[in-house]
Amino acid sequence: MALTRDEIARVAHMARLSLSEEEIEGFAEQLSRILEHVERINQVDVTDVPPTYHAVTLQNVLREDEPQPSLERETVLALAPESEAGCYKVPKITEG
């Protein structure tokens, strides 16, 4: 399946990746080739085959509802690129 530049741009936006023109060109070609290989799975008959989401079967792994200490605010905010008034600071929120 060949991917168009438009599709690459759409996926890049969905993934929040700004790509250069060069990257878009390169990815369109590379991803098309990889997808071509990946599409081999369509040759397999998987009718009535259930999907495997987990490699080892486990269920109901639960935690008791008991509070444990949180991290110090100073510690976590020190990791942040920008903070103010005990909060993380982010640029102007635009829709989309």
Binding site: E84, C87, K89, V90, P91, K92, I93, T94, E95
Partner: peptide, 9 residues
């Protein structure tokens, strides 16, 4: 939309 930045808690 009108704010120049937002703070997150």
């Amino acid at each position: 939309a009108a704010a120049d930045f937002s703070l997150v808690d």
